[in-house]
Simulated scan of single mutants.
Amino acid sequence: MKYALVTGGSRGIGKAICLQLAQDSEYHILINYNTNKEAALETLNAIAALGGKASLLPFDVTNYESVKSALDQWKANNDNGVIEVLVNNAGITKDQLFLWLSPNDWSQVINTSVNGFYNVTHNLIQDMLLNKFGRIINMVSVSGLKGTPGQVNYSAAKGAVIAATKALAQEVAKKNITVNAVAPGFIKSDMTSHLDEKELRKTIPAHRFGDPEEVAHLVSFLASKKASYITGETISINGGIY
């Protein structure tokens, strides 16, 4: 059986991606979460309601041993299973002007996005190479492209993942594995719920926040065989912010 793993798949953009992949593909969706099992179960039930297949795969993306142990256990229990699609979606924000940014707020954000990318991808890349097929999609941000004041930590983390995307794409392209990044702008989710949407809309040419489903459609396309000649790209989905 073929699987798609979405880290941080229980809420927001991650949840929308899980649902879209379940609708558009034959993949069994592996919903990763760290602490919020209730939200993960809601996503699981929503996929079941669509007639899709899904299961939960909890681990902390920032902890290499936790990731390795969870994936080794999964592989042992699923002899014929192959994870063809990986969406590195788990991420957190700890916004603060750089002057006031604590060491903890710096390292937590870097750990989740950058080390999270390494920890999960590193544990799956060998199987993708042996299988001669894979789709790795890294969720980044407009902040990683243009930088956002008050988000030096988040901008640094997402910028690092964008650079890693370009490098890894070149290493594995011959094996029919694509590595791309998706850079959303302002999307309606828990992560943006504290922002002043009315004020920020003025800075967006499309004059609105995006929907998680719009991001999910793009991810679903990149996960498909139709996108086999797109690799090393960072695709912005931001309503025209440049």
Rank of each mutant, 00 (worst) to 15 (best):
I31C: 10
N176Y: 13
P149S: 14
I110F: 09
Q151L: 09
A163D: 07
H28P: 07
I29M: 12
G159M: 00
T7V: 04
I31Q: 11
P205Y: 05
H122Y: 14
Q96H: 05
V142T: 12
R11T: 14
Y242I: 01
L222N: 10
T93N: 09
A70Q: 08
G134S: 00
H207Q: 13
F133H: 06
L218M: 13
I241F: 03
V219H: 09
K53L: 11
L168H: 04
P103F: 07
G144Q: 04
V152G: 14
L57P: 05
I204N: 05
A164M: 15
V82T: 01
L5G: 11
P184I: 09
H194F: 00
D72R: 08
Q126N: 05
T234C: 05
N80L: 00
V85M: 06
A167F: 03
G81D: 09
G232W: 02
G210H: 02
N34D: 06
L5T: 06
R201H: 03
K37M: 14
N80V: 06
I47V: 01
N238P: 01
F133R: 00
N138F: 11
L21I: 01
T148V: 11
P184H: 07
K68M: 06
Y118Q: 09
G91W: 07
D190K: 00
L130T: 01
S236C: 02
N80P: 02
S141G: 03
I17D: 08
T62C: 12
N104Q: 14
G159T: 07
M1Y: 06
E84F: 06
K37Q: 15
S189E: 01
N176T: 07
I162H: 13
V161C: 08
T192R: 04
E38D: 15
I136R: 05
V140G: 14
G14T: 07
L97I: 11
V161K: 03
T35V: 07
S113A: 15
T231K: 04
R135K: 15
N36K: 05
Y154K: 00
G116I: 06
G239D: 04
A163P: 07
A169P: 13
V140H: 11
W106P: 10
K53W: 09
P149K: 15
I136H: 00
K166C: 00
A90Y: 04
Y3M: 10
K175V: 01
I187S: 07
T203M: 12
D211V: 08
G81C: 00
R135H: 02
G9W: 05
P184E: 01
V120W: 02
A157V: 11
S25N: 00
V109A: 02
Y64G: 03
E171C: 04
A183P: 13
K158W: 09
L200E: 03
T93W: 11
